[in-house]
Write a protein that binds this DNA or RNA. Sequence first.
DNA 1: CACACTAATGGACGATCGTCCATTAAGTAT
DNA 2: ATACTTAATGGACGATCGTCCATTAGTGTG
Lengths: 216, 216
Amino acid sequence: MSVSETKATSKSTKRNPEHSKKLLISAALDTIAETGIGDTTVTKIIDRAGLSRGMIHLHFGGKSQLLTAAAKTFSEVYYQELEVYVQAAGSDPVAIILSVIKADLSDKVMNDRSTRIWHAFRGAAGTDPGIASFSNTRDKRLREILNSAFMEIANDYDAKTAPQQAKAATYGLLVMLEGMWVDYLANARSFSRSDATAIVSKFIAGLFPNHVWQVK
Amino acid sequence: MSVSETKATSKSTKRNPEHSKKLLISAALDTIAETGIGDTTVTKIIDRAGLSRGMIHLHFGGKSQLLTAAAKTFSEVYYQELEVYVQAAGSDPVAIILSVIKADLSDKVMNDRSTRIWHAFRGAAGTDPGIASFSNTRDKRLREILNSAFMEIANDYDAKTAPQQAKAATYGLLVMLEGMWVDYLANARSFSRSDATAIVSKFIAGLFPNHVWQVK
DNA sequence: CACACTAATGGACGATCGTCCATTAAGTAT
DNA sequence: ATACTTAATGGACGATCGTCCATTAGTGTG
C-alpha cells in the first residue's frame, strides 16, 4: 500500500524539518510585514508558525540567520515571478520592457505584504551585510534586462549615443518603479496600477517616441 | 555686565528644558538613522544626548511621543529647506520644477542621515498614526507646487488635456525623486547627483519637448 | 536667608528580549 | 523488541527593554 503519494516531502503532521524551516521563514516574513524588522521577535515568529521556542535556534542557529534566510527566499520569489513575465514577452525589446513594468506593478509582485517586507529589508541592508547581499539582487538583474532592451531600441535613433541613452532610460525606469513601490507602501488604498502603468509608459514614450509603447 | 547675550535661550550649561528637548529630538533622529526605529531604545537616545534616563518621560511623556515629535521636526526641516529653493526660483514654472528637483537632490536635503530617517519613518507610518500624519506632508506640499507648475506648462501644448498631463507629470516626477532617495539609501557611495538630475530632466523634457529644461 | 517651584537625576520595577539545553518523542536500523 | 539518531519541546537564564518616582539641585521670589 501507499504506493501513490502526492508529494514525497509532505507528511504534514509529524517530524518534518524541511516543512518547519519553510514555516519559520514564512512566519518571519509575515511578522516583518506586520511590525518591521526591529520589532520582529522570536516569540512573534514561533507563535505565528505554531512551533516551539527552540526551533529557530535548532534550524537556523539564531534569529539573525533566520532573517537572512528569509531575505534570500523573498528575493528568489520576486526574481522567479519576474522571469515568468519576461520569458512570456519574447524577444521584442519593447515587449520585454513593458513586461517588466507589468510584472513589477502586478498584484502578485507588488502588494501590501511584499512592499512592506521590501521596505524593511532595504532599511536593514545598511546595517546587516547578510541581508544587504540579497537586497541588491533585484536591481542587478532588472538592470541587465532593461539595459540590453533599451540598447536595442536606442540604436534605432542614434547609434553613437545609444549606450548613454540606454543607461539613462534604464536608471530612470528603475527609480520610477522603485518610487511607485514606495507610493504603494504609503498609499496602498488609493494606488492605481493602471494609472501607474500608463504614466511609466508615457515617460518612456517621451524618450523613444518612434516606438509604440502600447500597454495591453 | 552681561548686557549682550548672543542668544536669549542658550544658557548652555545648566537647567535649560528647551535645549534639552531639542537635544533629545536630535539624538533620537541620529539613533534612528543609525539603527532604524525598531532598534532605537531610550538608552541609546539618552546616551547620545548625554542626558539622564528620566528626561524622555519628563519632557515628552514617553518614548513614542518623542519619536512623533522627532518626525514632526524632521518633516518641518525638510519643508523649510524646500521652500528656500522654490522661493528663489521665481514665478517661471520651468524654473520652479527645476528648483524642486535641485532641492530634493541637494546634499543638504538628501544625504545619508535624511534618507535613512525618511525610510524609517515611512516604514513606521503604516503602524504608528502619529508618525503617519507627518510622513505625508512632503508628498502633499510637493504635489501642489509641481501640479500647478505643470498645469501652466501643459497649457502651452493642449489646453484640453492639460489637467491629465499635469497630473501624470507630477506623479511621474514625484515617484522618480522618491525612487532616487531609495537608490541613494541603497547605494550612497556610487550615487551621482548630477547624473540623477540630468536623467530626471531628460524624462521631463520627453513629456514637454518645446520647453527648455536646462539644469544650471 | 528661607521658601517654593521645577528641571534634572539615576536607580528600581516588572516585562520582554534572544539564547541555550535538558528532556521528550518520533523515525530508523539492528 | 532494542538501540540509536535526531526533530521537537518548553522552561530557565542573564541581558535589556520602557516606565516610573523618590531624590537632588538649580532658579526666582519673598
